[in-house]
Design a protein around this nucleic acid. Sequence first.
DNA 1: AAATGACCGGAATACCATTCTGGTCTGTTA
DNA 2: TAACAGACCAGAATGGTATTCCGGTCATTT
Lengths: 189, 189
Amino acid sequence: MDRREEIILAAEKSFSMFGYKATTMDQVAKIANVGKGTIYTFFSNKEELFHSIVWKMVEEMKDISERTAIEGATFQENAHARIMQLLKFRETHQLFIKLIEEEKELRTPAVGDVLTTIEKEIVNFIAGKIDRGVAKGELKPCDSELIAYLLFKSYVALVNDWSKTHDKQLTEKQITDVLNNTIFSSLLV
Amino acid sequence: MDRREEIILAAEKSFSMFGYKATTMDQVAKIANVGKGTIYTFFSNKEELFHSIVWKMVEEMKDISERTAIEGATFQENAHARIMQLLKFRETHQLFIKLIEEEKELRTPAVGDVLTTIEKEIVNFIAGKIDRGVAKGELKPCDSELIAYLLFKSYVALVNDWSKTHDKQLTEKQITDVLNNTIFSSLLV
DNA sequence: AAATGACCGGAATACCATTCTGGTCTGTTA
DNA sequence: TAACAGACCAGAATGGTATTCCGGTCATTT
């Protein structure tokens, strides 16, 4: 297999297992069965390698979310399913878990940067769906980025944050009910 | 002046200037012109003293927010004014600023606990306003705690978080527009 | 030309001696 | 005798330094 691919696979494995800070270039080289210098012929430094891996993950995440859409479902149903999928990915995917953990405990700057980039990408992704809904005449015209932002933050608040200060998680019905009555209802034509 | 009050004033000053971890009981005693042992006749330990100060601050914050309400204004107008006031207090009040900073940099557990308690208190405060609106027939019955939570989190997202990833802050009009169309509109009878 | 890994300097870590701090307690003051 | 003060204690925090570790380079090998 070509060396670049070996390196990417090795880096994926190592970043997922140990996080950004704790993976060493020696480590990656070893796993990839490659001399350390070889990595630098494909990636100019550790951070570029890291971005490469993370970007691949983001694409995969968007892809999965995309495939979650159901033919013939309403905008709200699809949006709900897609966003829930994104949140689930966040707490399921090894690398993502590790990055969130590292951000919380270690405050590694490179990781913080990457996480905000990912958030932006997610919000953009949602905004794109809204724009498409508007174009198809399903939704009222609106500031799609702002709405996407509010929507995503609301989901995170209700799905993830709520349970940090309350002992029983919100049910999916409670979440869809409140959001259908508020943000979603304001979007529909 | 009575010694208990001296101690509280001293503690307020010290916590505001240095945060929780960096204020020592000796420090507080010195400022209060009191022997260290004396503090322990009024407060059983450092944390209790701290809670005392923080609680006082929370009462003041609610009080200010309360007084912001305008006679004869709509529920939305008052809610907006009150919540904006709360957020402003958060980034204006010395002690509050210090605590948020300490939570971010030092991760002092006592401070983290206190901050979540404060958040709960704020959400409760908002929920109370909603309940009153329902009782007066201005608002539809609803899960007031859930709505209060969503509302507060949305405000924080739009007022504070947005500007972390975007260079121009949202205008107050953008914020009121989007929230009037979504959360507030779902509340009105 | 491509790949390697010994090597480098600066950053991170581990270690331990010293200081600091929350809380107690005994002596003192009013 | 009740309120107060501050010396005192044990354990936690800190600081300084000797050592290890790691990203990145580059002379050598394939």
